[in-house]
Design a protein around this nucleic acid. Structure first.
Lengths: 189, 189
DNA sequence: CGGTCTCTTGACGGAGTTCAAAGCTAGTGG
DNA sequence: CCACTAGCTTTGAACTCCGTCAAGAGACCG
């Protein structure tokens, strides 16, 4: 929870009473490695702030193949936005990649909190601005680079992160099969 | 400009004085077909509201191939978010696909306007929420469907829009070459 | 240890690209 | 209002990246 306050204070000022309000309204949830926070077909009234550890958002296509669409590490928000906004059943799974903790932001208490702490409107606007910008960037990498280029680029940009996740998750995030990732690595060695 | 007010009023209430403030701070710009609002290498201190017509955001890769990353029709915001947020030179082009008009939202007057009309924080939060959700959706289509499936899906979803844009733009948006689009169409006929 | 994930390796196949050339369309100026 | 040109679309052949399938080798956890 403290991690969330710190994150918020990078963008807005929080008074002590705001923190009290937030502490009362939000809940911190510990998650074990591989545990699911959301599964396909369920409603998703939450936005998740990764306080500690690492989560991933993925879906399973009709051939049974997993596709990771987002990793969320410490200090990122992550959720199925369509299901969060629209209230329909989700088409995604949200899973803890590592043991850690998330803060649950509940859509059903969102309006009340935003009224009591108007600065949060600004906070979420800025957070969304950055995540939309990141998505735009990711789209560009996915469409412009070859699989091998994406791997090397990602590997150079986040060398420590690559060690933290299994290769099949990384492959599905980078948009190719685990077999192909294995072949890239064999070439480079 | 009136189109923008209507869009804002779908999410928040605007007082007459707010509209006066906005009218003074924002500018409406007419654009001719094929005209560029932003070019690679330039700064991008604007967010663009498409008031009438259709714009597209694209980049050119090192082989000289254009990739359309977003279409913005009436009632959508469109810009290079990285360059807008970060203030670096843009890596994108923003071009009018049809003759029309856009409203320019200037980052340099953003803070002042948001202070004078706090409800706008909420408006932009909700707009960004929806556009981030749309990007998440688009990512899924791009990674999970074959080129041919994407074409048919898009064609069924937006049959009237497909008529409005040249095929090479559509192909680059759907993630394949104009030649391939031509072959899909030949198969179906 | 034993079983279940995870990673590697190789042969084959297919979706989509590249290159080149020809046909078509639409905008522009005379 | 027609003719010309530049840009857009079509078509085909060769090629490539990467997926699929299958089988085996590690690696991790109870």
């Amino acid at each position: 929870m403290e991690a969330l306050f710190q994150h918020m204070e990078r963008y807005i000022k929080l008074r002590e009473e705001d923190k009290v309000l937030l502490s009362g309204a939000l809940s911190l949830r510990e998650v074990k490695k591989k545990e699911h926070l959301l599964e396909e077909g369920r409603l998703c009234p939450y936005n998740y702030f990764v306080s500690k550890g690492c989560c991933r958002l993925y879906y399973v296509n009709d051939k049974g193949i997993e596709h990771t669409v987002q990793f969320g590490i410490d200090g990122w928000w992550i959720t199925d936005l369509m299901a969060y906004v629209g209230g329909q059943p989700s088409g995604y799974y949200l899973q803890a990649v590592e043991t850690g903790a998330v803060v649950l932001w509940d859509r059903r208490t969102e309006d009340a909190l935003l009224q009591q702490i108007p600065a949060l409107e600004r906070y979420f606007r800025l957070v969304l601005l950055r995540s939309a910008a990141a998505e735009q960037q990711r789209n560009r990498y996915l469409s412009d680079f070859s699989g091998e280029e994406r791997y090397h680029h990602f590997n150079n940009s986040f060398p420590e992160f690559v060690q933290r996740v299994p290769q099949y998750m990384l492959a599905s995030y980078l948009g190719f099969t685990p077999e192909f990732l294995s072949k890239i690595r064999a070439r480079k060695a």
